[in-house]
Nucleic acid binder design. Sequence first.
RNA 1: GGGGCGGUAGCUCAGUCGGUCAGAGCAGAGGACUCAUAAUCCUUGGGUCGUGGGUUCGAGCCCCACCCGCCCUACCA
Length: 599
Amino acid sequence: MTHVLSAVAWPYANGPRHIGHVAGFGVPSDVFSRYMRMAGHDVLMVSGTDEHGTPILVAADKEGVSAKELADKNNTVIVTDLVDLGLSYDLFTRTTTGNHYAVVQELFRTVHANGYMVEQTALAAISPSTGRTLPDRYIEGTCPICQYPDARGDQCDNCGNQLDPTDLINPRSKINGETPSFVETQHFFLDLPALAGSLSAWLDEREASGTWRPNVIKFSQNILKEIRPRAMTRDIDWGIPVPGWEDQPSKRLYVWFDAVIGYLSASIEWARRTGDPERWRDWWNDPEALSYYFMGKDNIVFHSQIWPAELLAYDGRGDRGGEPGTYGVLNLPTEVVSSEFLTMGDQQFSSSRGHVLYVQDVLARYGPDPLRYFICAAGPETADAAFTWAEFVQRNNSELVAGWGNLVNRTATMIAKSFGEIPAAGALEPVDEAVLEAVRAGFDTVGDLLGRHRQRAAIAEAMRVVGEVNKYVTVTEPYKMKDESQRERLATVLHVAAQCVSDCNTLLAPFLPHAANKVHLVLGGEGEFMPMPRIEQVDELDPDNGAGLVSYPVITGDYSATPTWGTRPVTVGATVEKPTPVFTKLDPSVVEEELARVG
RNA sequence: GGGGCGGUAGCUCAGUCGGUCAGAGCAGAGGACUCAUAAUCCUUGGGUCGUGGGUUCGAGCCCCACCCGCCCUACCA
């Protein structure tokens, strides 16, 4: 047994999640975590909502509410989205807790004490009316190259050139139109060049492991070439106060010295809530522990460079040396598991243009497992992938319904009609032995693929095994055994079929946990087969040190009853009734309906 | 501009170290069967593996150039 940290990207609390988000970090991390638990590992899966930063502040201003109020609202929405998908977090919390503030500040102090946080003056665009930092993308003006009047501060959408906000002619704030002032401002910079050597060594070692996706490791190494110090503070009043700068409330920590630390702070919060506040160390201090970080590709730089740099700086493992703080030497990521992007049709999702599919809407209409299935089977694992309703319906109908669902249904129906319970098997014939062996072999092949984050191949392999069992039922023809003399053979075949369905259900459980629970009941099982997450309203642990939370909803769960990865004998005598279908066939007309809905 | 990824059967995609690698699923065609949500099972796939060169006894798989598409380019998270 190994301690395995599943560190899942923190969704930004600026609105509900669309299916591209959960395809990138949500479903893959859950499938992996569920499998690793089944394989006997001690998994800690953590995440939360990322609630600081300019975009939330701007959106809150626009809605006439405080940033905290907006964050509260969106936190609740996102928590609901994720729990409804069945994502089995041990703790899904948020960045506005007192615990998180304290952990972030501890990291800052130690990184600073170790010499990796240096003060520098930077030229920043400030909104004169609010005093807040105006990020480059919130500044518009005329492009100095092509004269396009609505160029953004970071890039001109017309000619594609990269710009600096100070280059713009007649710059203006995208938020309120005022002219930004470019002022000298003091900030703390993370001295990434002093950590580059250690980062490079770590990446080389990781590359040698051969486990990272090629594009992720190559991209990570490439961006190391142009590494330079990065500001870790901002002129903004919505964020975590900067230790040492308590007298400057308009300076706060940058979101990326905030959100990524959530992996650690959430682990600590989880431990505190279990009553064993030091328990998180099993995942962070033990060099044998493994950690997997799940995200979309736009986050690679933060997880393969900034976060490990922060950890190395905290540990005192950069060029300037240093000593770890109270948390001890912290583990760097074992693997950065980055997905590509899910597109809708041939375009990227865009909430602002209405080209979007929200998780809650898809779940309300089709339930969680058809969406989980699509993401696992056709998601953006190593390349951008397109979501289309036609493919969604086709995969649901021909693979989930006609393939797996039908196998469950035909098996259970025959057992119900002939015996009403799972019959005991007589002597096994070669055909019986063969199918049982084919299914058992699936635990090795599917498990190996899952351990290597090859979920598309893994679920395809599981479905191939399902096909073997459908073939078995067709070839043995139990539905023709109506004579009393064939009674024992019928019992044997149906017993074997039930055993195979049970094992296939286990194989598919990491992908389709909701369906797994239904199939478990169909075969006469009791209770919950795959444990499910729940929302729990918890009290703020450190009311004096956060953003003013009193209580908040978290996702958590007890996954200790997770079934083990492998075959388990079906219970002879368990009652089997004629089942209601596990999956719902979709009429092809939903394709038209959904396309009309999007417009 | 720089960097990365991809272009394989109508559609979606597999192809790890170059030598049964020209494949799978879906769609289509034919057949079998009826337990099952008309589901299942069997048979059926000659596509210049983006284009043009090159290396090699031999290349989707290596090298070069080019065409097309997508992504990243770091103070939006």
